[in-house]
Design a protein around this nucleic acid. Structure first.
Lengths: 213, 213
DNA sequence: GATTTAAATGGACGATTGTCCATTTTGCAA
DNA sequence: TTGCAAAATGGACAATCGTCCATTTAAATC
């Protein structure tokens, strides 16, 4: 059993991580100082060094945590849907563009870290991990779809569809970043499905996945 | 005629801007300090205040300059191509993914500024401008294509194609950011054209624009 | 209840930040 | 060539940065 001592310890640890994410979302990375973090976490100055050994490690940990949250969100959605390739894809697309995942806070955080990725190995590393996992999931779904669609070179088509779909979703996030208030989720979703229905007319239409007869 | 005095003045001004961009590309925004900038520009400490009134203004100006450079590059390419809609689109796609525009330095800079966009009004503002201009150019091209393709609701199709194409290009930039060494320009280009040829089979194939008979 | 020890505190510290201005340099006009 | 003014210099400055540790607090154990 976890003693009260360890429980408090972990709560404080988490408070620091969440304070970093809140600050990054609201003020950006360059204004996320130690003073800012400990003020938000309502903890004392020494805690960062105690728990993480330094500010940089804490920030890396916060980035990792945030990435994990995103991925858990997508995974949870996949549990709730059917098993066909097009259902998986539909769920990923809708999930990635849903309010729960694509919102001002997450976008601010994600782009702030992306901006640092080139210069911080730790951040670049799991930014990759997220992509690799998701990419694999999407590819497997498209591989099934491409096979069913009997296209020439189904492997290449599946790879292109994966790459193209993820790229388009990335671009929608950028759109949201730059115009969070005028961004239209339904329009963004429809555009992705327009792409998919052009490529696989038997599997998708503008509204999402089709069930094959 | 520009006197030698003014000429030196403007050269120094530009040196500061380029020093900022070099530093942002190499070290990131958070490590781009006044000391770093003036060291790179080989100028004295007071110059930033003299020319720009402060560091923040200089950084904003550098971001504006960088955005202008991007846009000029795309525009220059458009001068060299034909006048059909699909030729314009092809040139924008190829240009946006070309070594001259999509390279490590530009990507580092662009994402660094994007990461700050949410928290710096000046940077967000022209980040928008770039998008609005380019978007308009692309939309006009797709509007012609959609009309020729005789689709239902050509206006909506053109809007979706514009949105989808730009989103996909954005996503390719992100890909390049995260995997600059394994990124394959030809593959990225082919995927965009796969999307376009699915939507407008009479205007595009996997290799780019088709000329209508 | 007394003792032990892990956890948390908060201030001291040197380094670095961006700003600003008294001084020096230098191009240009008289 | 001299005098003027614009431009550039570089160090002083207060503010803030992140680190670290001597001290205090409080949970766990005896």
């Amino acid at each position: 059993m976890t003693g009260r001592r360890q429980e408090i310890r972990e709560r404080n640890r988490l408070s620091l991580i969440e304070a970093v994410l809140d600050s990054v979302a609201e003020k950006g990375i360059s204004e996320t100082s130690v003073s800012e973090i400990i003020h938000r976490a309502e903890l004392s100055r020494g805690m960062i060094h105690l728990h993480f050994g330094g500010k940089d490690n804490l920030v890396d940990e916060a980035a990792r945590y945030s990435s994990e949250q995103y991925y858990n969100g997508i995974y949870a959605l996949l549990e709730t849907t059917g098993q066909t390739g097009q259902e998986h894809i539909e769920m990923i697309v809708r999930g990635d563009l849903s309010e729960a995942i694509l919102n001002k806070k997450n976008v601010s955080i994600w782009y702030a870290f992306r901006g640092e990725a080139r210069n911080r190995a730790a951040i670049a590393a799991f930014s990759d991990t997220r992509d690799a996992k998701l990419r694999n999931l999407v590819f497997n779904a498209f591989a099934r779809i491409a096979k069913e669609a009997k296209v020439d070179d189904p492997n290449q088509v599946a790879r292109d569809a994966t790459h193209g779909t993820l790229a388009m979703l990335e671009g929608m996030w950028t759109d949201y970043l730059l115009h969070p208030d005028s961004f239209d989720r339904n329009e963004a979703t429809r555009i992705v499905f327009r792409f998919l229905s052009s490529m696989f007319p038997a599997h998708f239409d503008l509204d999402g996945a089709l069930s094959l007869e």
